[in-house]
């Protein structure tokens, strides 16, 4: 188990190193200049140059790179040019909103997707199977921003049940949190629910064809018990893999949903930073998301190892 963990951690570190290099390269790859964005058109070239010097944008490339790695090794992602505050603090204060959104969406997608997959598999080739899989396909095909606007129109404008957007932290009001997160999480979760449903169905069907399931059926064990005790644990490996992928996709999708529902999350911070060429936030945000993504993947790997002993031995 220790060797397995060490291998995974080493892999994660290599990925992190590559992402940190890419983050640094952003400043050179992306056109536009934060100094121009910060000052208005009336600024003289001299004033722009002074700001570039103050921001360290005119330092030689190796020196900028040394500063970058020096800072990130100390856990310092730098100062936002536009927000004039620490990038780490800006990311951390927006993290609860993004985690609330992605976490709740993951819960909706997982519970709904696995349930739909089981229903479809158990009713293989019957109308329930066709209906569930058709719904899953529609869910997969619908653009999330469009679905978001439709849900706002129905549940917020027409029915008035839920707010159109915004975010209330859980600590401030659990009910307020639930009301503000419900529609965005549903929007984000529904799209991924279809994906998990289709994979769950396939995994379940494969397990249901196994001899031991047929034996259990011949022994007269109830269908529910066969599904819950024998099929589901064995179908879990591919489902966990998909949940890991979906968790990453949800972090990406949250960027769009945060815009639609005006949620103050990490995605909106990064989008705003891109528009203003706030390079420290762009770089720090990319690195931060990579760390979150790698942590999710590492967790999924650990769950594999716990669920399936064969993984630990390979």
């Amino acid at each position: 188990m220790a060797a397995f963990l060490a291998r995974r951690l080493a892999g994660a570190l290599i990925v992190l190193l590559l992402v940190s290099l890419m983050s640094f390269a952003l400043i050179w790859l992306v056109p536009g200049d934060p100094a121009s964005a910060f000052l208005d058109a009336s600024a003289t070239p001299d004033q722009i140059q002074r700001l570039r010097t103050a921001l360290g944008l005119d330092e030689p490339l190796p020196l900028q790179m040394a500063h970058w790695y020096g800072r990130i090794l100390r856990g310092d992602l730098g100062e936002s040019i536009l927000l004039q505050r620490s990038v780490s603090a800006a990311l951390i204060e927006r993290l609860p909103a993004t985690l609330s959104l992605a976490g709740t969406a993951l819960l909706i997608a997982t519970l709904g997707g696995v349930a739909a997959g089981i229903v479809a598999a158990v009713n293989h080739d019957k109308w329930a199977d066709q209906a569930t899989m058709s719904a899953a396909l529609i869910g997969l095909s619908v653009p999330d921003f469009w679905l978001g606007l439709v849900l706002i129109l129905v549940f917020a404008v027409s029915l008035g049940w839920l707010p159109t957007g915004g975010f209330v932290p859980f600590g401030e009001s659990p009910l307020g949190w639930l009301r503000t997160i419900a529609l965005p999480a549903l929007t984000l979760g529904l799209v991924q629910l279809g994906f998990i449903a289709r994979i769950s169905r396939t995994a379940m069907l494969e397990v249901m064809r196994q001899d031991y399931v047929r034996t259990a059926d011949a022994k007269g064990i109830s269908k529910l018990e066969i599904v819950v005790r024998h099929c589901l644990p064995n179908a879990f490996i591919p489902i966990v893999t998909v949940i890991g992928i979906v968790a990453g996709a949800l972090l990406g999708g949250a960027v769009v949903i945060e815009q639609v529902y005006s949620i103050p999350g990490v995605g909106r911070l990064i989008i705003g930073a891109i528009a203003a060429r706030d390079f420290p936030v762009m770089q720090g945000g990319l690195l931060f998301l990579a760390v979150v993504y790698l942590t999710v993947n590492l967790t999924v790997d650990l769950i594999y190892a716990l669920v399936d002993p064969r993984v630990r031995l390979t």
């Binding site: 706002i152 917020a156 404008v157 639609v260 005006s262």
Partner: peptide, 11 residues
């Protein structure tokens, strides 16, 4: 702060 025009109208 509501960047999405449709969301502003809905609100």
């Amino acid at each position: 702060f509501m960047p999405e025009a449709g969301a502003r109208t809905a609100a």
